[in-house]
Design a protein around this nucleic acid. Structure first.
Lengths: 210, 210
DNA sequence: AATAATTTGTTGCTTTTGCAACAGAAAAAG
DNA sequence: CTTTTTCTGTTGCAAAAGCAACAAATTATT
């Protein structure tokens, strides 16, 4: 939380300081970037929501990551040895800052404040990515759809400081995020309601236990 | 690979340069560390093998990560909001370098070369962690046990530059790593053999496709 | 070298999950 | 404001995965 706040300020203050940083705008549904070659793109989502998605050979869609304001993404975080194409799709209008990772390390010619600050924050930025990924791994290693749902809900509950919260995406997308079949997930949601674990009105969930 | 080589040299050259860095030795089976409180431990595995494991309320064990030489781990990579205890267990004799993450950021009093070099390498170190975690997420989002097995095998094959390779752990542990039932995994392995996808002699696997 | 502990491999049965298909509700687009 | 598209919710059936239990093989331990 405090990290995010810093990033936010830092972007505001310095984004125009460096001519190497590109800002691009995307409409809902557009592909922001595809992880095809190792161009070492490094992106910050200034505003909007986007998903990193993968489609496997059976046509299954997986939402690998869900990005909102100030999240970072890009090829630089991936070994592109895999055969499945990954791409980042804008779910709403998006403003994205794009640069090449090598530029951060090897200082900018103009030695601008943007790069100075970025390399200062970089370990923290990437570290927050690691903790997020670890939470994701924890979710995905849960053995049943029920445990994945409850695990994810309890995460959102913690983040919102409340037993009641709104899902950041549709139920269809939630299934793709938890990597389970949608209809099976809907069934499990119904059982969770029937068993008195949760209440659900649209995309709003309330945890009833503990 | 080139990153690992650098880390290796860097550890050899500078590890004794800083009095704040602790080196500890562990016997097989010992718990190296538990992620309980946020002490911001940051560890480098100098030698040996270790697993980061979690046991859920149903008694299922999950191998969250598998560490070998020069891998990094520690509480600093986790938000300890979860209820499940995570601990790192030595699978063989292990030599571990331990320090506190804050020490890296705020420079060491003595301004030693170790910390200097570490903060230089840190983004790369953490970044390699991110790419590893992303591969792990890719594996775990595969829908079937078969796809998880094949995905993992193809990863090992790529890493070893060979269609034949040895699993880094027992089949029992492999199941805990892929987060599937062991007997179901054994069944799937047999079918993969029968269908001519793989050959298997003990812990050595050969891919027969493509 | 003998014993204990762990790992491998297998199977019958149960439970969970996935698939396909559909209707109604809600949201987006024109 | 109407039409089109996407999303939600459900179901019967099929397939996959989990569970429990066991014997044989392998690996550690004393």
């Amino acid at each position: 939380m405090s990290i995010n706040f810093n990033i936010n300020n830092f972007i505001k203050d310095f984004e125009n300081d460096c001519h190497k940083v590109q800002q691009k705008n995307f409409e809902k549904g557009e592909v922001i970037t595809s992880y095809i070659q190792k161009r070492n793109q490094f992106c910050i989502l200034k505003s909007g929501n986007a998903d990193l998605v993968r489609y496997d050979s059976n046509g299954n869609k997986t939402i690998v990551e869900h990005f909102s304001q100030n999240d970072i993404f890009g090829e630089v975080f991936y070994d592109i040895t895999t055969n499945n194409e990954l791409s980042v799709e804008a779910k709403t209008k998006c403003q994205v800052l794009i640069y090449i990772y090598d530029d951060i390390h090897s200082k900018c010619r103009s030695n601008c404040k943007f790069h100075q600050k970025l390399s200062e924050y970089l370990p923290e930025l990437i570290l927050s990515k690691v903790t997020n990924l670890n939470m994701r791994v924890e979710l995905l290693t849960k053995r049943s759809t029920r445990d994945k749902l409850l695990g994810y809900f309890s995460l959102l509950s913690t983040r919102h400081f409340s037993k009641t919260f709104t899902l950041p995406f549709s139920l269809t997308d939630l299934a793709d995020y938890l990597s389970v079949d949608r209809s099976a997930m809907m069934r499990e949601l119904r059982i969770l309601k029937e068993d008195g674990f949760i209440e659900k009105t649209g995309n709003s969930i309330t945890l009833l236990y503990k």
